[in-house]
Computed example of a mutant assay.
Amino acid sequence: MHIDLTGKTALVTASTAGIGLASAIGLARAGASVVLNGRSAASIERAREALLAAVPGAAVRGVAADLAGAEGAAALIAAEPAVDILVNNAGIYGPQPFFEIDDATWEHFFQMNVMSGVRLSRHYLQGMLARDWGRILFVSSESGLNIPADMIHYGMTKTAQLSVSRGLAKLAAGSGVTVNAVLPGPTLSEGVREMLQEQARESGASIEETATRFVREHRSSNLLQRPATVDEVANMIVYLSSPQASATTGAALRVDGGTVDTIA
């Protein structure tokens, strides 16, 4: 299968590292012009250099904007008024005991993980419908189905993304615009590496070994018995952004290594 996104512009939020950067690189390899997003000009420049090293000659630019609030979304929209592909990847996570999660933390998670995608989709979907072509993707999580007891606030936001994604797909019914959600499982991103550093140091094991042990002990239903790579998740995102995925919409596609124990 040859995916050709020449002439398309793709915006990937939170694309300076992890799944976001891997997706930006994959979309650039397919020929798309890519708009990077991060909270600082410095992080965007590092990501731009990494993307160009992987895809020499790619068309890439960036917009620094913190999407945890309406002002950041407005700044991004002002800088990039129209895109063909929107990957709502911005999000935060982290374990925290339920009884210690205050209202401000709940609100921050909701604003960052849910409202960032709502605000951007509300703007960009209108242009996609007018042009009768577009792709919107929400990077949710298997935690939206398997709510983790140590990250209930995170799981809630990931479930909310599934509702928004399905509803927008219905809104775009009959058009050339598709809206889908991608549900990664345990993925060895930079953030996960940082989270496991202390545990790896204490055990004397590598980050990769520590991550694999975590999956086997805490996500025992995972059929891969290892974390996914960011590239493995990005492959699904690139496919769903392509013309070849024109009949897939309103779906929640798992890249979770079989962690969610269902055949549906």
Rank of each mutant, 00 (worst) to 15 (best):
P95E: 15
T229K: 07
A104N: 13
G62R: 00
H123W: 13
G72C: 09
G258I: 01
D102F: 00
A41E: 15
H2Y: 13
V233M: 06
T157S: 10
L51K: 00
G94V: 07
A10G: 05
A200Y: 01
I77G: 04
Q126H: 15
Q199H: 04
W133R: 00
V34Q: 03
L120F: 12
Q111C: 09
Q225S: 11
H2P: 06
P148A: 12
A50W: 02
R131I: 11
N146K: 07
L36F: 14
D84P: 01
L67M: 07
G57A: 04
A82L: 05
A41F: 12
S221L: 02
R119T: 15
S116K: 11
L11V: 10
A251C: 13
Y124T: 00
A70T: 08
V63H: 07
S116H: 06
M156S: 12
P227S: 08
E208D: 10
T187I: 12
S175W: 12
M156K: 15
V255M: 11
L76C: 03
I25R: 06
S43C: 04
H218S: 06
M195F: 13
P243N: 05
Q244V: 08
I101N: 06
P148D: 14
F138Q: 03
A22W: 01
M236H: 13
R119E: 08
G167S: 06
G38T: 01
D103K: 07
A247K: 08
I19T: 04
W106S: 03
L27H: 09
T187V: 12
S141Y: 00
S221W: 00
R254L: 06
E209A: 03
R135D: 03
G174V: 05
T248V: 12
L27G: 05
P95G: 13
A149H: 12
I136P: 01
L11E: 04
V60A: 10
F109L: 02
E190K: 13
V177C: 07
V139Y: 00
L120V: 06
Y124F: 14
G69T: 09
P184S: 14
A53D: 10
R119Q: 09
E71S: 14
I152D: 09
L162A: 08
I207H: 07
I147Y: 07
I3Q: 01
G176H: 01
L137D: 04
Q199G: 00
A54D: 13
L240E: 08
